[in-house]
Computed example of a mutant assay.
Amino acid sequence: MAVSGGGDSMALLDLLRQWGKAELAVVSVNHGLRAEAEDELGLVASYAAQHDLSHDILQWHWDGTGNLQNAAREGRRTAIADWAKANQLQHVALGHTKDDQAETFLMRLSRGSGVDGLACMSELRERDGLTWLRPMLEIAREDLRQHLRDNAIPWADDPSNEDPRFNRVKARQMFETLAPLGLTTDRLAQTAAHMGRESDVGNWALNTAAQNYATLDAGDVVLDAEAQKALPEALYSRLLAEALSFVSGAQYKPRFRALRAAIEAGQPTSLHGCLILPSKQSVRITREFVAIQETRCHVSELWDGRWRLIPPEGLDVAEMEIAALGEQGLREIDEWRSLGRPRPSVLASPAVWHGEKLVAAPLAGLKNGWQVRHLPHTSVFGTTC
Rank of each mutant, 00 (worst) to 15 (best):
N151L: 03
P135E: 07
G95V: 05
L109F: 12
R125L: 10
M107L: 11
Q101T: 13
L124I: 14
M121L: 13
V115W: 05
R125S: 11
N87M: 09
A152I: 01
R127F: 05
M107A: 14
G117D: 07
R149P: 05
A119P: 03
A152H: 15
A102T: 02
L148H: 06
S113I: 01
S122T: 12
Q90F: 02
T104H: 04
D82E: 14
Q88A: 14
S113W: 14
G117Q: 05
C120A: 13
D128M: 10
N87Y: 06
Q88G: 08
Q101D: 12
D143K: 01
V115P: 02
W83P: 15
L118Y: 15
A102D: 04
R134S: 12
W83N: 07
G114E: 10
R149K: 15
R111M: 11
R134G: 03
H96G: 00
W132L: 15
D82F: 02
Q101L: 15
D150M: 07
H91D: 14
R125H: 12
L144V: 01
A93W: 14
E123A: 10
R127C: 11
A86G: 15
R141P: 00
Q101P: 07
I139R: 02
L148I: 02
L137I: 05
R127D: 14
R145S: 03
D116K: 12
V115K: 08
N87C: 03
L89P: 07
H147E: 08
R134E: 11
V92N: 04
G117I: 07
E103C: 10
M107P: 05
L148C: 05
H96R: 05
F105K: 00
A93Q: 07
H91N: 14
R145P: 02
A140W: 00
M121Q: 13
D100I: 05
D143A: 04
R149S: 10
A86M: 09
L94A: 03
C120Q: 12
Q146F: 00
A81I: 14
L89A: 06
C120R: 13
L106G: 06
L94W: 09
H91S: 13
L144R: 04
